[in-house]
């Protein structure tokens, strides 16, 4: 049997006296497209923040490619193949599109010579070439020298995905990548993400748009009030009573006749 690329074992997180995640466990297989869903406040983004190290795990462990990363410093995680985007876009507002994308390569420039070589002066610099290729593959048509704060929402959202891809991740975590996109853009993004997944990148998506989840994900975990209430395929999730209760509430289900 294949070894999971990312194992989340019984992670628990408290914010003061409030337990926001309790004993959440799931495994991601290499190349799998995985959805993490749940009502607002269920703890989805908290899972992302625990995996990327922004928050520390109170108990439990996170294993990435057989290596325990539970207490690894934040900046070392991207080099091991864990890359993420943010729910509310967090690009560097004063950097240009190209510079933002090139920030995603930072973890690969390990030697001091790579750090002090000018990357903005010569056109045929290899870092720059790779950034330009990835931007082109993603179908991002935008003035690369424009400052990102001047760009529309949809474009910035896409730049964030491209930036996350630049580190050549083995696990790519995207927090609501389709939020705020129009239907056409959502379809394009789904196609793009499937393409990424075909090159053996594992996807972990937090998303509210169920059509998007159905279009992409092979497996779904549902969180509610910090607990895992379901794990299975997107088809099964629609029929699961606990999930429907969590989203619609018991009374709504009774009045609409769903049992």
């Amino acid at each position: 049997m294949a070894v999971p690329i990312l194992q989340i074992n019984c992670i628990t997180k408290f914010f003061g006296g409030l337990k926001v995640l309790e004993d959440v466990s799931f495994d991601l297989m290499p190349g799998q497209r995985f959805g993490l869903i749940g009502p607002n406040g269920a703890g989805k983004t908290t899972v992302f923040n625990l995996l990327s190290g922004v928050y520390s795990v109170d108990s439990g462990s996170v294993i990435l490619a057989n290596q325990d990363i539970t207490n690894l410093p934040i900046r070392k995680r991207i080099g091991l193949g864990l890359s993420r985007s943010f729910q509310n876009i967090r690009l560097m507002p004063h950097l240009s599109v190209l510079e933002n994308v090139m920030m995603g390569q930072h973890c690969q420039a390990n030697r001091i010579t790579e750090m002090i070589k000018p990357i903005g002066w010569t056109k045929n610099n290899r870092w720059r070439q790779r950034a330009l290729e990835t931007i082109k593959d993603a179908g991002l048509e935008v003035d690369l020298n424009s400052t990102v704060s001047e760009l529309p929402y949809g474009v910035r959202k896409k730049i964030e995905v491209v930036r996350a891809l630049m580190s050549k991740p083995s696990v790519l975590m995207l927090d609501e990548p389709a939020a705020g996109l129009n239907p056409q853009e959502t379809i394009e993004l789904a196609g793009f993400l499937r393409g990424i997944s075909d090159s053996n990148v594992t996807l972990l998506l937090v998303e509210h748009d169920m059509n998007f989840i159905h279009a992409i994900c092979e497996k779904v975990v549902v969180l509610n009030f910090g607990l895992k209430i379901f794990e299975g395929t997107p088809k099964e999730v629609n029929r699961n009573k606990a999930v429907l209760e969590a989203y619609l509430g018991t009374s709504a289900m009774e009045s609409s006749g769903v049992t």
Partner: peptide, 18 residues
């Protein structure tokens, strides 16, 4: 580039490996 990134957002810079 890393210096300017830290200026804009230190948490994201750290996640990017800076």
């Amino acid at each position: 580039l890393a210096m300017r990134a830290v200026h804009d957002d230190d948490v994201v810079s750290e996640i990017m490996g800076v």
